[in-house]
Simulated assay, not measured.
Amino acid sequence: TEGATAIHADDKGDLTIDPKVFPAAVAADLPAHIAEALANHQLPLNHVAFEAPVDTAAWRDKPTFYVISTKDKVIAPEAQKFFADKMKAETTDVAGSHASLVVHAKDVAAVIEKASFVK
């Protein structure tokens, strides 16, 4: 995706998204000044976060829910669907970017609330 190709590591292995690409790739549905501020204040993520082995995945034994951001340019919606299907998750689609947690906060909160009542 456009956003994934804009992820770069520094000499310590910390990953950030190119601030010039960030607004369009991560937060296209936020006002430009907010997307630019997010781009300039993003915190790096170290690559080892993706390399740690998982012994037990909770989704194997518990009900799961997944909000698919259909306009995401960081994690392709097709990949999100693949992840959700693998987890047998109940899905909710929102027509939003990678920033769907902010832009579609009510929809995301409704999914979280629904999941909180599942035993």
Rank of each mutant, 00 (worst) to 15 (best):
T1Q: 13
T1W: 11
E2D: 14
G3T: 12
G3M: 13
G3K: 15
A4Q: 14
A6C: 10
I7H: 07
I7F: 08
H8E: 11
A9K: 15
D10L: 09
D10G: 09
D10N: 15
D11Q: 13
D11S: 13
D11R: 14
D11N: 13
K12L: 10
K12I: 03
K12F: 09
K12W: 10
D14V: 06
D14L: 13
D14W: 15
T16I: 10
I17N: 05
D18P: 08
P19A: 10
P19C: 07
P19Y: 10
P19I: 08
P19F: 08
P23V: 12
P23K: 15
A24Q: 15
A24R: 15
D29W: 12
L30I: 06
L30K: 10
P31H: 06
P31A: 09
P31L: 04
P31S: 07
A32W: 13
I34D: 04
I34L: 09
A35C: 09
E36Q: 15
A37C: 03
L38P: 04
A39F: 08
A39Q: 07
N40F: 08
N40K: 15
N40G: 14
H41V: 00
H41K: 08
L43P: 07
L43V: 13
L43I: 13
P44T: 09
N46F: 05
N46H: 14
N46W: 06
H47P: 03
H47C: 13
A49R: 13
E51Y: 10
V54A: 07
V54Q: 07
D55H: 08
D55Y: 06
T56D: 04
K62F: 04
T64S: 14
F65V: 02
F65L: 01
Y66I: 05
S69K: 13
T70E: 12
K71I: 01
D72V: 04
K73E: 05
K73H: 09
I75P: 03
A76G: 02
P77V: 03
A79Y: 03
F82V: 00
F82S: 00
F83Y: 10
F83I: 04
K86L: 04
K86C: 01
M87W: 08
M87E: 00
M87V: 00
K88Y: 02
K88W: 03
A89P: 03
E90Y: 08
E90A: 08
T91A: 04
S97H: 05
H98Q: 02
H98L: 01
A99S: 11
S100K: 01
S100G: 01
L101N: 05
V102G: 00
V102P: 00
V103M: 06
H104R: 02
H104D: 01
K106N: 06
V108C: 03
V108E: 05
A109G: 00
A110I: 00
V111A: 03
I112S: 02
K114Q: 08
K114S: 05
A115D: 01
A115T: 01
F117H: 12
F117A: 05
F117N: 07
K119C: 00
